[in-house]
Design a protein around this nucleic acid. Structure first.
Lengths: 138, 138
DNA sequence: CAGTATCCTATTAGATACTG
DNA sequence: CAGTATCTAATAGGATACTG
């Protein structure tokens, strides 16, 4: 596994919490991991699900997640290129953490600005409609 | 409750995860919350438990946590001043999140660099010696 | 004791343009 | 399609000095 890159450690017992956080902070990693919990996604599929992230940022975040051993990057040697991202076992093991974060958010965050009309939540509920509606297809 | 200040939202379902993360990111909040789970602490007690945080940063982080309604700040009108920080109900409700983060870290992070030789952990163990050594008494 | 105030640096993130 | 490269703006974080 490549060089891990978590935050400078403190290190009291709470340090472990910090170190774990450092792997999933950075503005987009949480969402990326969250979406990959649904399954493998290609670069632009991810992009479509994160309408506000720039290409550069998404690439960066993916690279860091990869460095941290949380996601796997599979490149298909073909034209046009195809790159798939998926969780590693280590990445999937974060599922309880993500679940805890999501549960807390659902219970405690008003989501005042953005109406939660979205909430597909079920893994089998295809949110493709959303995507289509938002980007007007590709 | 004062103006909430979480990260700019996205907002897909994973957004809730992001929003929750945004409340506990920022390099020291995790540890602060973690320590406050043990009970109320005064400003300098917290400082002693976070040997690497600057006064300014600790103040900032505490203010943000307060703004987000996660901790309460109680000022005693006396000289010398005394300020106590404790978790609010909302803050305590983060306990499962912290637990999940800690559990993951314990299971997956080597803690390669820093030996956990420190671990005073017990609230009654005075680490005053540390302070004395560092600042040459007050 | 528990902060503020300043100043300064480093890290993050965004926009935009280009490419194998 | 899935990126790089470059440049710049914003933010986070640190050092130091001062204060009610």
């Amino acid at each position: 596994m490549p060089r891990m890159r978590h935050r400078r450690l403190d290190c009291s017992p709470g340090c472990v919490v910090e170190a774990t956080l450092s792997l999933i902070d950075g503005k987009w990693k949480g969402v990326v991991l969250y979406h990959l919990l649904d399954g493998t996604l290609r670069f632009n599929e991810l992009r479509r699900r994160l309408p506000n992230v720039t290409q550069r940022m998404l690439t960066n975040q993916l690279r860091e997640l990869e460095t941290d051993g949380l996601i796997a990057r599979k490149v298909y040697a073909q034209v046009p290129p195809k790159v798939e991202y998926s969780l590693t076992a280590r990445g999937r093991s974060l599922q309880p953490v993500m679940a805890a974060l999501k549960a807390w958010g659902d219970a405690h965050i008003a989501l005042e600005s953005n109406p939660p009309a979205v909430v597909p939540e079920r893994p089998d509920a295809p949110s493709r409609l959303l995507d289509a509606a938002r980007v007007g297809a590709v």
